[in-house]
Design a binder for these strands. Structure first.
Lengths: 211, 211
DNA sequence: AAAAACATTGGACCGGTGGACAGGGTGCGG
DNA sequence: CCGCACCCTGTCCACCGGTCCAATGTTTTT
């Protein structure tokens, strides 16, 4: 059974459309007794970030085996991370389409984890600064680069200095510079800063005609 | 349709039991043409860690919209991270129970991400510790800056050099450096490159105001 | 009024960066 | 065999970027 926790039910209009058979309760204490196969969706807009971790953790602990999904109308990454770190299994926008919510529910029900593409990229980036193929917007034309150039470009786009990139790739700093120079040339940028900006927004990369 | 990529089909006995209707092909090139709703499961035990990223990334790129799940008989976290970072949507043990594999397939099919509980904890740990490190100046939020600092930060975040920013704001290059140093301090970054990365979320970077 | 924060600039130092010369190695197709 | 593309490395040098030292005036807060 779907259970949403929110003192003001009107904030969950989309959610109720997604789960007509679901119930909205005002407080976490009223959520007790949710059986196996249930899901708890916790609305967090009224919860301070500093309290969020404890609230989620308590809810997860009090409802062993029942996945908790956090829902917010103003989601930000820090809150998402806190929630997930405290045991939440998903983080969903309160204004997401009902179909999307049902997808989230399906994923969570099968033991999966739901994170938005944005957050996912950030999480992965924090763990390893290796590669950054982002599913959503497609990073510029990294495909126009040779594998080595691409590797260097990615290191730099994660903030690495030439020395750090060299160490990471097991080559000399000089070689990093060489690859980087080729990358600048191909993308028509003058330095690493513009490269990062170009990779952030593919539209800014000049469609450099093949010379 | 379920497609598994592995030169030695006998390694995927469990997988074939989980997906009797699935097909095992020997190489990635033979996987082309997988339509929407398909999934590609890539067996990676014969792939070196250093090549894993590119292999997965290529597969993801060549099959736009088709989720890629990595499967291994000897999964380790580093390989999992590389694979996920390159665009894989799940990382599954080759000897997992067929029911488990079907669950993974369900999660992935609905846009979710499958990571084992172990890896999940590690990812969250890495992210939160990174946040803690950044907490010296809190997350990049331009509202924390003084007006002048903000102006400089914006110029730089659009790719300006110190000299250009100075000219644009009608101040000395030296003063730009001073403001910039304050910005670095507040955001806990070491240089302009990391600043741009910290401001990567376009929503937090308002358009440059013409001075 | 005293204290704190802000805006501005100077000089000097040093490491990082990028361009301009180079060169040698591999592998692949004509 | 000979280009061609890619990968790797070297030296030299001018410039940029970031940090340390410092100072002066204004505005805001206490």
């Amino acid at each position: 059974m779907m259970l949403a926790i929110c003192p003001r039910a009107e904030l969950l209009a989309r959610w109720r459309r997604a789960f007509p058979e679901g119930r909205v309760v005002a407080s976490a204490s009223a959520a007790a007794g949710a059986g196996r196969g249930s899901q708890l969706w916790l609305h967090v807009d009224d919860i301070a970030v500093s309290d969020l971790g404890d609230r989620v953790a308590n809810l997860v602990r009090a409802n062993d085996g029942v996945p908790v999904v956090v829902i917010s109308a103003a989601p930000d990454q820090q809150r998402a991370l806190v929630a997930l770190d405290s045991g939440a299994r998903g983080f969903c926008h309160a204004l997401a389409a009902p179909e999307m919510m049902r997808q989230v529910a399906t994923v969570v029900a099968h033991g999966g984890l739901w994170v938005g593409p944005e957050l996912m990229r950030r999480m992965l980036g924090a763990v390893t600064s290796k590669l950054d193929r982002d599913a959503g917007g497609a990073t510029a034309d990294l495909s126009r680069l040779t594998p080595r150039e691409r590797a260097v470009a990615l290191e730099v786009s994660h903030g690495a200095t030439n020395k750090e990139a060299a160490r990471a790739l097991g080559i000399t700093e000089r070689t990093v510079k060489a690859h980087l120079a080729a990358v600048f040339e191909k993308f028509g940028v003058r330095d690493r800063l513009e490269l990062v900006i170009a990779l952030r927004d593919p539209a800014t990369v000049p469609a450099r005609s093949v010379a």
